[in-house]
Write a protein that binds this DNA or RNA. Structure first.
Length: 264
DNA sequence: ATGCCTTTCCCAGAAAGA
């Protein structure tokens, strides 16, 4: 079984490449982020033609998350239970969707950026991560394979950015953000470390500007956090950097995880 | 080592991304 996560940076702009990628890589489950499309404009039909059922949560211009599965899609939960809103407490963004896909329970998440450590968006980010921790604690301890996949917008360690000196006073690397990730892991989840396929670090994001991808100045911020039954089933994990190449690419590459489950 | 790209809103340029 193959499961992947990919921040597509607009599913509308990325649709030709997404459909090609699904056809060639054949994931059974794909978690997507930054679909940037309202739920009623999501390309359900095009993915259905490739055999995928889809659950999409969207609000139009910003954010948007989805799950595509060809092994079943049940018990869909839209949004982050108990999560904060932005800019006001009751304005909930499209940043989380979860579903049961065959033997797996999965979340597709898009963590708020934070913008700047002094910005209220940063406080929102930390509140959001705390709510995510509370929302996954039961499934993390369960016997069913369970994983949270997506764009966490936090580099877990200094090894996960091209140069820590470039991130002084920046978001994505602060102790509070990293502590919030540690609290999520402490529910019983492990960080699935993918192979980079090229160079030494498994970056998942490279800025569009200034040839960052070609200089390999990237970050590892798209993560797969799995519980013990999930981790025990992982046979391989890697960054599909091919998908970041060329014109019309997202600024994120997919993280692909191969699983060998006893039931499949 | 930043908004030098990209996308969306909609047709001009602001907002957002990390």
């Amino acid at each position: 079984m193959r499961i992947a996560t990919w921040n597509v940076n607009s599913i509308t702009a990325r649709l030709p490449r997404l459909l090609d990628w699904l056809g060639s890589e054949q994931p059974d489950v794909l978690c997507m982020q930054e679909t940037k499309v309202a739920a009623d404009a999501f390309p359900h039909e095009q993915l259905a033609e490739l055999g995928y059922q889809t659950a999409a949560l969207g609000q139009g211009r910003w954010n948007g998350v989805a799950i595509a599965s060809r092994i079943g899609l049940d018990d869909v939960c839209e949004g982050l239970p108990g999560g904060p809103g932005y800019p006001t407490a009751d304005e909930f963004e499209a940043r989380a969707v979860s579903a049961t896909c065959g033997p797996l329970r999965v979340w597709s998440i898009y963590v708020p950026n934070g913008r700047d450590p002094g910005h209220d968006h940063y406080a929102y980010k930390l509140q959001w991560l705390t709510a995510l921790r509370d929302a996954v604690v039961d499934d993390a301890k369960g016997s069913r394979p369970f994983a949270v996949l997506g764009d966490f917008n936090v580099a877990p360690t200094d090894d996960d950015v091209w140069d820590p000196a470039a991130f002084v006073d920046a978001t994505h690397v602060t102790p509070a953000e990293r502590a919030a990730l540690a609290e999520i892991r402490e529910t019983g989840l492990g960080d699935v470390m993918p192979r980079p396929l090229k160079y030494d670090k498994p970056f998942t994001f490279w800025d569009y500007r200034a040839g960052m991808f070609h200089k390999n100045l990237g970050m590892r911020i798209d993560l797969v956090y799995g519980n013990t039954p999930f981790i025990d089933a992982v046979s391989d994990a890697y960054i599909d950097r091919q998908a970041r190449k060329g014109t019309g690419a997202s600024d994120h590459a997919p993280v692909v995880v191969d699983l060998t489950l006893s039931s499949t």
